[in-house]
Design a protein around this nucleic acid. Structure first.
Length: 197
DNA sequence: CATTTGATGTTCT
DNA sequence: GAACATCAAATGC
């Protein structure tokens, strides 16, 4: 079943990041077949007191605007001019918290993912990595702000989430400019799962 | 294996 | 003009 607005609108973005592991990210883009993958790696970003977050200090631009809306929407932006990165907006309206999905494990529509990625073999390079999974699932900035309770992008709970002992917490990556905030262990992945970065 | 480099849009200085 | 929540291909061991 699809995750509820209540799930997305909880206050603890770090806790939601942990809970997203094992959930299934699904997309149906245009006339393409459904594609879906188990979320194996996430990173939390908090809009307040977190130098690594795009919306730190109440920064409000066309790009960050959706993060200030209520949880349960997609924050998608272009990174390094090339990669579309997918985030889940959380918390209530006015608080800009979001979770970056960094890797998934394919479960449905693998053939479609291979086509979109221009690859022949199904291995972790297909969907492990924030820029890779968006390409595999057909996510682009055209889908900026879509409602995750709609039928284009959504997340399902299929009842196979890892228990607390199966989750590893590590430092976030690629955010050295955030100083000591970069050292927060707000990156989570499923232990012993090869579909991570 | 490790390291380097090119691709390249949005935002901020 | 510089920096940036990255990736893939090329180069050097």
């Amino acid at each position: 079943m699809k995750l509820s607005y209540d799930f997305y609108r909880r206050k603890d973005v770090v806790g939601i990041s942990r809970d997203l592991l094992g959930k299934v990210l699904c997309t149906r883009i245009g006339d393409d077949p459904l594609t879906a993958g188990i979320i194996t790696e996430t990173e939390a970003y908090c809009g307040r007191d977190d130098l690594a977050c795009h919306a730190n200090g109440g920064l409000r631009t066309d790009r960050t605007e959706i993060m200030y809306g209520p949880g349960g929407h997609a924050y998608i932006y272009l990174c390094y001019g090339i990669h579309h990165l997918f985030n889940v907006v959380t918390n209530r309206e006015g608080l800009a918290d979001a979770i970056l999905v960094r890797a998934v494990q394919p479960v449905e529509g693998t053939e479609t993912m291979l086509l979109r990625r221009g690859r022949e073999k199904t291995d972790p390079a297909l969907t492990a990595g924030p820029g890779r999974l968006t390409q595999a699932l057909g996510i682009t900035t055209k889908l900026y702000g879509v409602d995750l309770r709609g039928d284009t992008i959504w997340i399902e709970d299929r009842g196979d989430s890892p228990d607390a002992n199966g989750i590893a917490a590590t430092e976030r990556v690629g955010v050295d400019y955030a100083g000591e905030h970069a050292l927060r262990k707000w990156r989570f992945h499923i232990k012993k799962n090869p579909w991570v970065t």
